[in-house]
């Protein structure tokens, strides 16, 4: 989706501000939030619930809110929205910190989907040195093709092998188990940024095969 998380090439954010001797977590709650979401501790609760993709939940935060929030506060918003959507918690429970005694304890569900035959490994459509163009795609769901690369010409550097597509539909559901080749593509700086870039410089990124076409 075309929203604020896709920041490459934007102006106006000011200087980068490194912090000396930065701790891993600035506050206790940041560590708890990290562990809740990234630590896999909720893994069994995802089963059978078609949890939307984590990155999709982050990207659906309204742009004004996204910029106002700290990094781990976005994670809080994304996780609580996911749990609420799956019916695993209620607003009131999040407000009080206690389970509603009237509601039954949630139960783990059997896994759904993912069955069926594994598709055969696709042959690569491109090889190192091929000239390609990133397609001019503007999907409403999650995608890994940044806006700044769309419709730009590049050169295949490497084939990184076969990976599952991470894109989702506009409701955050994974589009399917589409394994395809992921290529590192080199875009010359001036192709992306005109004469603001040095003619020597380049940006390389990793693109699923369906994002690119022969140039």
């Amino acid at each position: 989706m075309n929203t604020i998380h896709d920041m490459g090439g934007m102006d106006g954010f000011g200087p980068v501000e490194p912090e000396e001797n930065e701790p891993v977590f600035h506050e206790t709650w940041e560590g708890r939030m990290f562990a809740l979401f990234a630590g896999g501790v909720l893994g069994p609760w995802r089963r059978g619930r078609n949890f939307p993709r984590f990155r999709w939940t982050l990207e659906t935060i309204a742009p004004e809110e996204y910029l106002r929030m700290s990094y781990y506060e976005r994670w809080y918003a994304a996780l609580t929205n996911t749990l609420l959507g799956a019916g695993l918690v209620t607003e009131r429970e999040l407000e009080t910190g206690y389970r509603d005694a009237e509601r039954p304890l949630p139960t783990q569900l059997p896994a759904t989907g993912g069955g069926g035959p594994t598709p055969p490994d696709p042959d690569p459509a491109f090889g190192a040195g091929d000239q390609v163009r990133a397609r001019n795609l503007h999907p409403r769901g999650h995608t890994r093709l940044p806006r700044y690369a769309r419709d730009k010409r590049g050169t295949i550097v490497t084939d990184n092998g076969i990976w599952r597509l991470q894109d989702t539909d506009e409701n955050g559901q994974v589009l399917g188990n589409f394994p395809q080749h992921v290529y590192t593509v080199r875009f010359e700086g001036q192709e992306l940024w005109g004469d603001r870039a040095s003619p020597r410089d380049a940006v390389c990124m990793d693109l699923w095969e369906e994002y690119i076409e022969p140039a």
Partner: peptide, 15 residues
């Protein structure tokens, strides 16, 4: 220096 090439790696996939 101007003659050094700068390559930026944007981690857009699983690499």
């Amino acid at each position: 220096d101007d003659d050094v090439e700068v390559r930026v790696w944007d981690s857009t996939a699983e690499v």
